[in-house]
Structures are given as structure tokens and as C-alpha cells.
């Protein structure tokens, strides 16, 4: 899904680079050709970087300006060329730092607009929400109560995913024939908050009051006050 913060990062980052590039261009004594400038910046972008995990994200930290060195090597016979395009190559390398800073700033920004601890971040548009039965132990006659779902989204409270406990609860002392899956429903056709960049998979607990949201190989568990499932006659 579309990520608003990521798009803003890109737009802002490149705008800054463009702004500095224009500034350098005007200052230049003998006007360099525009497309060569663009290439110099693009080549300067290449760097040897290491990825550092920061707050669950991988941030790319540039170490060696490989692109700048490469350009220097290729233009070493033409001193005038190198002098003209060197500042732009360094600008390209510097762009890595601009994006690094923006990436760091994006983390709190993303969490501000799309708080990770609220169910409404992950389950936002429920207009076409539907139930998919995943396991035969589910109540076949259960239907989704969209009105209650809408209310409960706001009231939910987050709890810990207890994967090991849930697993053994179902499996221990229960033969295959009488195992009841704890999360036998998928809440399908719902989307996360617009611009969050999430495409979550949503499970509903068999009592209709628990929701597990899974995105980017992570899970969060929320409990509701009322069940969102209507039981029919079984």
C-alpha cells in the first residue's frame, strides 16, 4: 500500500538536492551542461554503505564515496572537466546523508500519524469487510456485525501476542478431531489507514472479541469489549 511518509521523504529529499544543484549551477563560472550535471550527481550517489537497524528500520549509512572516486578516476586526464563536475559528484554523495536524516525523521513522523499501538491504524476502511472461515471449528453461522466492528475499533486495547501459549492451548491434550482453532476467521477486504504503507492480514478470534493484525512479519493483538460476530442458529 502507498506510504505517505515515504513519498514525502523522497519528494523533500530530491527537492533539497535540486535546490542545492541549482545554486551550484548558478555559481559556476563556465556553464556546465545540464545532463552532464545530472549524470555527475547520479554517479556521486553511489557509495559503499552499511545498514544499521534503528528502531526496527534499516538505515543506510554511507561510508565510502565510490561514485565520486570513480568519476575522479575517469576524468583524471581532463582537469577542467573534473573541476566543473566535482561539486555535483559530491552533491550526489551528500544526497545519501540527506536521505539518511530524512529517514531518521520519518520514524517518529510515521508513528505520529499512524500510531502502531492503535487498531484503527491497521483496520480503517471496513465498508466491504467480510469474513473468511479458515478452520472447520469456526462457527459457520457467524456473520460479521459491521456496526459493532466500527464502534469497537476505537475502544480496543492492545495486549501481548502469546503465540506459544495459544499454540499449546489448542494442541496439548487435544487430538486432531477435537481441536478448536483460536483464530479461525480472516477479516477480509479491509484496508489500513490511507498512506500508512501497510497491507495487513487480520485474524478474528473465535469469541469475536480478539483481533490479531499481521504486517511486515510482525503481529499485534487487540481485545474488544464486544464481539463483532453475530451468531445465527447453529
Amino acid at each position: 500500500m502507498f506510504s505517505l511518509v515515504e513519498s514525502l521523504e523522497l519528494i523533500l529529499g530530491w527537492s533539497i538536492i535540486l535546490f542545492i544543484a541549482l545554486h551550484l549551477y548558478r555559481k559556476a563560472e563556465n556553464l556546465p551542461s545540464i545532463w552532464k550535471v545530472a549524470i555527475a550527481i547520479a554517479v556521486g550517489l553511489f557509495s559503499f554503505s552499511i545498514n544499521i537497524p534503528v528502531a526496527g528500520e534499516l538505515i543506510s549509512l554511507p561510508i565510502l564515496p565510490l561514485g565520486v572516486w570513480a568519476l575522479n578516476f575517469f576524468l583524471r586526464k581532463r582537469e577542467r572537466s573534473w573541476e566543473r563536475y566535482r561539486p555535483f559528484a559530491w552533491l550526489g554523495f551528500g544526497a545519501n546523508f540527506v536521505f539518511l536524516i530524512l529517514a531518521l525523521l520519518a520514524i517518529p513522523l510515521q508513528n505520529l500519524i499512524y500510531p502502531e499501538d492503535r487498531l484503527t491504524t491497521y483496520v480503517s476502511d471496513t465498508e466491504n469487510a467480510s469474513l473468511i472461515v479458515l478452520h472447520p471449528s469456526a462457527d459457520d453461522s457467524a456473520a460479521l456485525d459491521k456496526k459493532i466492528l466500527l464502534e469497537q475499533l476505537e475502544i480496543s486495547n492492545q495486549q501481548a501476542v502469546q503465540s506459544e501459549e495459544w499454540y499449546y492451548d489448542t494442541v496439548m491434550d487435544h487430538e486432531m478431531e477435537d481441536r478448536n482453532e483460536r483464530f479461525p476467521y480472516q477479516l477480509a477486504e479491509v484496508s489500513a489507514k490511507w498512506g500508512s504503507g501497510f497491507s495487513p492480514l487480520v485474524f478474528i478470534e473465535e469469541d469475536g472479541q480478539g483481533i490479531v493484525v499481521m504486517k511486515e512479519a510482525e503481529q499485534k493483538y487487540f481485545r474488544l469489549e464486544h464481539s463483532i460476530l453475530q451468531r445465527g442458529e447453529s
Partner: peptide, 20 residues
């Protein structure tokens, strides 16, 4: 298959799926 996974503090539970 039903699965559970605990690593670096992150817990992941995969429900058993059996759709027919």
C-alpha cells in the same frame, strides 16, 4: 500448519488453516 515463533521478543502466531 499451525505455528508459533518467538524471536528477539517478537511473537508470531500462525493459525491452522484448513479450508475445504
Amino acid at each position: 500448519e499451525r505455528n508459533f515463533q518467538v524471536s528477539q521478543g517478537e511473537q508470531l502466531y500462525t493459525p491452522r488453516v484448513q479450508m475445504k
